[in-house]
Structures are given as structure tokens and as C-alpha cells.
């Protein structure tokens, strides 16, 4: 049969044969578990016993769970504080680094290093930084100045920003590199034309650089938003013992999912939260793409 095919048809067959591998991979590793998670969210399962049909019970429980709403707010706090700050800081660094020739490569490497460091190791080091005296770095410093210590992680208001700081710092290197690539892609001639016309530096930034960086900004905003919505490593490792911080003040959705699944063994409830997270990620990404894309 294969022999009777035309050359074009044979090419199509081969293309599909090769494409089948990633398609099967995605079906088994991605789509099947995703569909299964959606199914489990409608069931009751403690990992040991049988799965029991529960209908919308898990979603109902979620809606009426005050901790879930607290966690929901925290998750958006990470997003709404983390994304703009990391965007501004990384742009500022990239903008100035781009103009710098002296030790350019070395500085770029320094900014990129935290991105390559394991989040777990970094979280534990920062956890130690934040401890009260006599072991905490920051508080020991305050103490030598005679200032009373600050309970960074044992505070219902300060704990979330304290955890966010290393998360922003860790992602900075990657965003700086992307911004610099974007800056390099802007044709020099635009700047030269602006200089000939005698336009101020501020206008150049506002009218040329930022508009032409839009695709880069869209990418970074979407990418870092998804990152902050899925924040887990930093929170989990900086608050083990009292997971999610004092009175759940730092608990993000992913940590709640983890706890429901692997400490409470309430797989159905965890799956329901996962579906909600999936929808949130989907909506946030779509909205951002819509707003930031060229119309």
C-alpha cells in the first residue's frame, strides 16, 4: 500500500510518523493526567481506598472554605506585588547594563547566578537570614545597632513580602537577560534619528525603547505571572514546621494543594483546587495576552 503512495503522500506519512512520538508523549504525560485530575476533582479519594463519586462536593467545600479564600488572596498578592516589582527592577538593570561596557559580562553573570541556584537551597539560606537573634543575619545586624528585632517570618503582615523578596531576586537574572536581548534587537538607526532630531533621553525611552520592547514585556509579564501564581518552593521551604506561615499568611494555592493531597490525603479536594488554579492561570494568561498584544 505504502508503495502506491505519491512522493507527497509518503512525506506526509513520514511527517506523521515522527510527529506521533511527541503527540503520544503529550497524550500520556500531559493530557491523560490532566483529564484524570479533573475526574478526581469530582470524586472522594484518600489514596488508600476506592474512589467514590462525590459530584460537586469538593467545589462546594472549596467555596465555603475561608482558608481557600485567604490562600486565593495570597496567591494574587504574590502576583500583583511580585510581577510589577520584578518587571521594573529587571528593566532598570537591563537598561543600564546595556549601556555599560566595563565588566559587562561579569555583572551580567552576577545577575544571572541566582536564577541558576536551586530554589530550595536559596530558600533555606534566606530563612536563616530572617531568623530572630541570635542566629538571624538581618536581626543580628539590627541588634548591634540596638534596634529591637523584627520577626520577619513570624508576622502575619511581613512574612509574605519577606518570602517574595528572594523569589523576585531569583527570577531577576532571567528577566534581565531577556530584556537585554530585546534592547539589542531595537535598530540603532531609530536612536540615531532621534539624536539628530535632538529628542530628550526620556522621550527616547518612552517613545522608542518601551514601545519596541512590547513583545519582550508581554513575554516577561506572562512568564513571571505564571511563576508567581505557581510559587511553592520558597514558601514551602521557608515555612516548614508551620507550612504557609503564621495563620496561613503566606500560603499560596500550590502549597494548599500539596497539603490537601499529601498531608491530608484528600485527593479529590486537592484536584478541585488544581482545576481552579488551572482556570486562573488560563484566564490571567489570556487577559494579559489580549491587553498587551498589538491590536
Amino acid at each position: 500500500m505504502y508503495r502506491n503512495l505519491s512522493v507527497h503522500q509518503k512525506q506526509v506519512v513520514w511527517a506523521w510518523a515522527f510527529l506521533a512520538i511527541p503527540i503520544i508523549f503529550y497524550a500520556v504525560i500531559r493530557f491523560y493526567p490532566t483529564a484524570n485530575a479533573m475526574l478526581i476533582s469530582l470524586q472522594d479519594w484518600n489514596l488508600l481506598g476506592d474512589r467514590v463519586w462525590a459530584g460537586w462536593e469538593n467545589y462546594d467545600k472549596l467555596w465555603n472554605d475561608p482558608i481557600f479564600w485567604k490562600v486565593f488572596r495570597n496567591t494574587f498578592a504574590y502576583l500583583l506585588i511580585g510581577t510589577p516589582i520584578s518587571l521594573l527592577v529587571s528593566f532598570a538593570i537591563a537598561y543600564h547594563l546595556d549601556k555599560l561596557r566595563f565588566m559587562h559580562g561579569f555583572l551580567r553573570m552576577l545577575y544571572f547566578l541566582p536564577f541558576m541556584t536551586s530554589a530550595v537551597a536559596m530558600a533555606w539560606v534566606w530563612r536563616w537570614f530572617y531568623q530572630p537573634v541570635p542566629i538571624g543575619l538581618f536581626n543580628n545586624f539590627l541588634s548591634t545597632l540596638g534596634i529591637a528585632q523584627i520577626e520577619f517570618l513570624r508576622s502575619t503582615t511581613l512574612a509574605l513580602p519577606a518570602i517574595l523578596a528572594p523569589a523576585v531576586w531569583a527570577g531577576l537574572g532571567f528577566q534581565v537577560i531577556i530584556f537585554m536581548a530585546g534592547l539589542r534587537a531595537i535598530p540603532r538607526s531609530y536612536y540615531e534619528a532621534a539624536r539628530i532630531d535632538g529628542v530628550s533621553g526620556w522621550t527616547v525611552l518612552w517613545e522608542i525603547t518601551i514601545p519596541l520592547l512590547k513583545p519582550t514585556i508581554v513575554f516577561i509579564v506572562v512568564f513571571s505571572s505564571i511563576g508567581f501564581l505557581r510559587i511553592f518552593d520558597q514558601v514551602f521551604n521557608m515555612t516548614t514546621g508551620d507550612p504557609g506561615g503564621p495563620l496561613n499568611s503566606t500560603k499560596p494555592l500550590v502549597l494548599m494543594i500539596y497539603q490537601s493531597a499529601f498531608t491530608d490525603f484528600d485527593m479529590g479536594y486537592a484536584a478541585a483546587q488544581t482545576v481552579v488554579l488551572f482556570l486562573v492561570l488560563l484566564i490571567v494568561s489570556l487577559v494579559q495576552l489580549r491587553i498587551l498584544q498589538d491590536r
Binding site: 537573634v133 541588634s143 529591637a148
Partner: peptide
Amino acid sequence: TDAAGNITQVGITAGMT
């Protein structure tokens, strides 16, 4: 306690964790 009033050695440890 130290000069800033912070505890540097506890009489007894405490933590529900």
C-alpha cells in the same frame, strides 16, 4: 537577653510545631 532586649538564650523552648 541582649542589649536590645532580644532573647538570646531561652529558659525553656516553646513551639507547637
